[in-house]
Design a protein around this nucleic acid. Sequence first.
DNA 1: TTGCATGCAAATGATTTGCAGTCGT
DNA 2: ACGACTGCAAATCATTTGCATGCAA
Lengths: 154, 154
Amino acid sequence: MEAQIDKIKQQLQSQGYKLTPQREATVRVLLENEEDHLSAEDVFMLVKEKAPEIGLATVYRTLELLSELHVVHKLNFGDGVARYDLRGDDTKHHHHHLICVQCGSMQEIMDDWLGPLEERLEKEYSFHVIDHRLDFQGICKSCQEKDQKKDTES
Amino acid sequence: MEAQIDKIKQQLQSQGYKLTPQREATVRVLLENEEDHLSAEDVFMLVKEKAPEIGLATVYRTLELLSELHVVHKLNFGDGVARYDLRGDDTKHHHHHLICVQCGSMQEIMDDWLGPLEERLEKEYSFHVIDHRLDFQGICKSCQEKDQKKDTES
DNA sequence: TTGCATGCAAATGATTTGCAGTCGT
DNA sequence: ACGACTGCAAATCATTTGCATGCAA
């Protein structure tokens, strides 16, 4: 982890920026939560545990700066908040959702089904995939069973 | 077009909603701009030309309603505004999006790649798929080229 | 009458910005 | 001292909500 911090420090300095304590705390939070897609508010709360005096605006400014330097990716999943992701080439997130339109339940599928598609995108469209989001809307098993029962009764 | 309006009217009525003049004006704007991904504000401005007395809140409420009824798709490309897309008659309106996290550009892919996956879901998870949504976040071709140039310069 | 719909204005929530003070070089 | 950096509060922007009114069955 120290190695990664050092690398980021150099990236900052090469562009004339400093790795201040606030920025370092923010980067550490991102490193410690590489798995997740943290929102700015999430990052803020986690950073506050290490550096309680930090301001939300600083977190936003830091994330924006890191984003410009391509240290993190700014992602948008349509839930109204921007999410940030450390740019590790190795970490990819694959989760799909089955959302039942009848009962509203949501099931996560951890399989990665899109590997071949992503390869195709890179080749055919020259699009470098960082992440994807795949949601299916439909009727879940238990609602199908409920429906069947109802149909039989009537 | 009248046929499509009628169809939407029936979809609304089947759920207990009415096709009010404001809603009809909004739907007409969406039909007339089927090609584009309009934001709520865009729709609002266009609807105002037909029905100047309409309020922005009504446009938002209408779009939200149509979205729930799956008449339109609510899309988010990370530029800070939600965009809306009329769902074409054909069930094969399954397009996917390539969203560049750097420049915010969006490209549509019209292929339907998920047929086999949907079959698998029905079998392995007993989940009956009605609709899906697939977005890829990544770096588009032109941003990759820009990055390369920048890297070379330094 | 009853309740869905509307327009307006005010409220909200995420993010940005203005500004005065702080810190390292 | 200079400019980069910060925290705070106020500003902004998209979207939502409260509420009194309007309208159709």
